[in-house]
Design a protein around this nucleic acid. Structure first.
Lengths: 241, 241
DNA sequence: CGAACATTTGACGGGCTTCAAAAGTCGTGG
DNA sequence: CCACGACTTTTGAAGCCCGTCAAATGTTCG
C-alpha cells in the first residue's frame, strides 16, 4: 500500500526477473548488505485470479509484498456482497501491522489477476526488525499513510451523489495507478465494474450507468471492460467536489 | 482514541482534580519519575461546546489529551454537512501521529460539550519520546487500533439499511462509552441525533425515525435528547448483521 | 418560565437498487 | 486464428428507501 521512490538494482534469488524487496518503501533505504539479508529470507508465491491469500480468521503469519499483479482486501456484508477496503498493486504490501500482534486477519484477501507475491514469515520479519530497527519508523510512516487513505475512503463512500463518489474513485485510481500514454491518462488497474461498486458501496448497474454518463460527456473513454482513459481530468475533479 | 487500563494516582499540577497523563495508554507504563517529567510539561486548555481545537489546514503542533468532556473530529462535505471521522472522550488522545511529520491537520476538531484537555507541545512530546523510546511502540499500537476503527467505520457507513447502520453505531457506542446502571446498559456519550447522522452519512430525520422504531420495538429507551438506554442488546446485534 | 434549540413526524419526490433481458467482451480449445 | 460459451456490462422499467421541506412537539438552560 506504499510505494518506493528509489529503486536499487539487486536481484532476488526467488523471484529472479524483478526486485521485490527494493520495490517497497519498507526496505528501500537498506544498504546492500541488509538488502541481501532480507532477500535471502524471502519466499515466493503465485496466485491466479480469484485465489485467496488468506481468509478472515486466519492467523496472521506473513508479510505480503505484491511483486506483480494486484490484490483486493475485503469483507462480506450481511447480504453477501464484498466490501473492499484496500486495492493493492505492485510494490504495495500487506500484513505488516498484523505481525506486531498475535492476531487473526479481520478480512479476506484475493488476487484480482495472476499475481506474484514475495512473503516474509513472522519470524524472519521480526529478525530483520531487530537487525534494522529503522524499519520501525517506516512501519509507522506507512500506518499513517494507511490511516489517511481510510479517512479519505470514509469521506468518499459517504459522498452524496454517485457522480461524486465515482469521480473521487477515478481520481484516486489515477493518482495511484495512472500512467500517461499517447498524451492520455490511462488507469492501469484491472478493476471491474463490480470491484468499483464493492469499493464504493454501490451496485454494478449504478457504476455502469454513471460511467456511461461520463463517457457521453467526453470525460472518460472505456476501452473494453478493464481499461479507462481519462479525457478530461478537470471535469472529473469538478464532479468530485 | 485509546484507553488506559492501569490508573496510577499521580496528581497533575495543571489539571489538579484529575490525572490526565495516567489516563492514556500512551503514558500508562511510565514509572513515577518519567510520569512526573511528562506532567511537568503539560499545558491545560478548556473549551466550551462548539469551540474549535483546530481547523483543517492548521499546522499540527500539539498532542491533545481529553481529560474531561468529548470531542468530534470531522470534515465538511461539499454540501456543507459535517462528516465525523472520530469521536473522542476522556482518556482518548489526538494529534500524536501528526507530530511525526511536519504537516497540517486534514480535518477540524471541536468540543461536543464543555471539555478540558491536557496538551503537549511538539517539542515536549519529542523530548519525551527521546527519553522514553518505548512510547514509540505505544504509538504504533494506537495507530493499529485507529486503523481497525476506520476499517469498521467504512463497513458501517456502507451497510445497506439505515437500521443496520444505526444498530452498528449503537453497539459501537455501547462498547466504547457504555456503562451499566440499574441492570440496564446506558450510553454515556453526549451525542445528538445530528452527530449520529454526521457520523453515518445520514440525516437527523432518518436517525430520529429509526430510533423511534427501535424504541417502539422495545430495543432502546430514549431519556431526553442525549441519553439512550439499551434494553435489548441482542436484538440490536441481530439488526446490525 | 421562556426563548432558543433539538427532535419528531408527515408528505412528497428523486435517486439508487432490484429484477430482467439484451449486448458486449474475454478466454479457451479446437 | 476463429468460434463458442461463460462471464461481464449495459440498458430499461418499476419500486422502495432515504432526503428534503415544513410544521409541531419536546428539551434544555439561562
Amino acid at each position: 500500500m506504499s510505494k518506493n521512490s528509489t529503486t536499487i538494482p539487486i536481484r532476488c534469488k526467488t523471484c529472479n526477473e524483478t526486485y521485490c524487496v527494493s520495490k517497497i518503501s519498507l526496505f528501500s533505504h537498506l544498504n546492500q548488505e541488509d538488502m541481501k539479508t532480507v532477500i535471502n529470507k524471502i519466499d515466493r508465491q503465485e496466485y491466479q485470479k480469484g485465489d485467496f491469500l488468506f481468509q478472515s480468521g486466519d492467523v496472521a503469519e506473513r508479510l505480503w509484498i505484491v511483486n506483480e499483479g494486484s490484490i483486493k482486501v475485503f469483507n462480506y456484508t450481511p447480504e453477501g456482497k464484498e466490501q473492499i477496503l484496500y486495492l493493492l498493486s505492485s510494490g504495495d504490501f500487506l500484513g505488516d501491522l498484523n505481525l506486531f500482534k498475535e492476531n487473526a486477519y479481520p478480512y479476506y484477501a484475493a488476487a484480482l489477476e495472476p499475481t506474484r507475491l514475495c512473503t516474509l514469515s513472522r519470524n524472519n520479519f521480526q529478525a530483520i526488525l531487530k537487525e534494522v530497527p529503522e524499519i520501525n519508523e517506516k512501519v509507522l510512516a506507512y500506518a499513517y499513510e494507511r490511516i489517511t487513505n481510510l479517512e479519505e475512503l470514509v469521506q468518499t463512500v459517504t459522498a452524496k451523489n454517485v457522480g461524486q463518489r465515482i469521480a473521487k474513485l477515478l481520481i484516486h485510481f489515477l493518482e495511484h495507478f495512472g500512467i500517461e500514454r499517447n498524451g492520455m491518462l490511462e488507469i492501469t488497474f484491472p478493476v471491474s465494474r463490480e470491484d468499483m461498486a464493492n469499493y464504493l458501496g454501490l451496485t454494478r448497474e449504478t457504476v455502469s450507468r454513471q460511467l456511461s454518463l461520463f463517457q457521453a460527456d467526453d470525460i472518460i473513454d472505456m476501452k473494453g471492460n478493464r481499461q479507462i482513459l481519462i479525457k478530461n481530468r478537470k471535469a472529473l475533479e469538478d464532479y468530485s467536489r
